[in-house]
């Protein structure tokens, strides 16, 4: 228990310091453009399939569940509303980011972790360069750029998946379905979900970089660091989601 507590404090301190350093070095010249573009390819483009599959199946399953459930009460016509609203506000951003915490987070931690173990991170420092700038910033910026885009794509796919099931299995007219979506969803709805993406992107990338840079005890450490990275960022996404939802809700009241 005591070690858990100590590790947690160490993690909080470590990630805070890391974010400060990232923020400081972000504005110093030159920006690592080439490395960042490489990471956008790794993080963004290569995650498209997983974001696609996650979103499509979420949308389809939800349409099916609500359709079957509401049919008993004659509420099938509410499916477009409910499904698209829950995807846009909640399921799209959170499920996509959870999957990305696994794919992208694990990738970043294991890659940086093996660089740490093989002294490549030390070598960057010894050659008079900054691992923050060469390794961390490209990944954080790439996540911050790609993950919201992936979420936007996932939102669209998820809603489309719902519509597909709605028309094929529930017998709802696609035109009616579409019309309902546009009637229901407001810009506020959209942004209250979408705006979570940048927060999750920062969590995923910073947590992953932190665990990668702090690998201990050789190659075996890379495995356990990767596990910790995925578990930690998933928990932060799930718990953070509650607080973000609440915060956005307060903001919505003002608007």
């Amino acid at each position: 228990m005591k070690t858990y507590f100590r590790n947690f404090i160490q993690f909080l301190g470590g990630t805070t310091l890391l974010s400060i350093e990232v923020f400081k070095e972000l504005w110093t010249w030159p920006f690592p453009t080439k490395l960042t573009i490489e990471q956008i390819y790794q993080v963004g483009l290569k995650s498209l399939p997983i974001a696609f599959i996650t979103a499509a199946s979420t949308g389809m399953v939800m349409a099916l569940q609500f359709g079957l459930g509401l049919e008993k009460f004659g509420g099938k016509l509410y499916v477009p509303k409910i499904v698209s609203l829950s995807i846009i506000r909640e399921m799209g951003p959170v499920f996509t980011c959870l999957m990305l915490a696994a794919r992208v987070g694990a990738g970043i931690t294991s890659e940086i972790g093996s660089m740490t173990v093989t002294q490549q991170i030390d070598a960057l420092r010894a050659l008079g360069t900054s691992p923050i700038k060469k390794v961390v910033i490209p990944r954080v910026v790439a996540c911050l750029f790609s993950i919201p885009l992936l979420v936007a794509i996932a939102n669209a796919i998820g809603v489309a998946g719902g519509m597909l099931v709605g028309s094929s299995d529930l017998g709802l007219d696609p035109q009616f379905y579409m019309q309902k979506i546009f009637e229901t969803i407001t810009l506020t709805d959209y942004f209250s979900g979408f705006a979570k993406a940048p927060f999750f992107a920062i969590v995923i990338s910073l947590v992953a970089c932190y665990y990668g840079l702090n690998v201990e005890e050789g190659t075996r450490g890379v495995g356990s660091a990767t596990t910790k990275s995925v578990v930690t960022s998933s928990i932060f996404i799930l718990v953070g989601d509650y607080f973000l939802t609440k915060a956005f809700w307060v903001v919505e009241q003002w608007l």
Partner: peptide
């Protein structure tokens, strides 16, 4: 760290296993 840059340019370090960027 940033002040150390010029020290590290003056003094090179050769790592045990090369530490090449793979």
């Amino acid at each position: 760290e940033s002040q150390l840059t010029h020290v590290r340019i003056k003094v090179a370090y050769v790592f045990q296993n090369g530490a090449l960027f793979d």
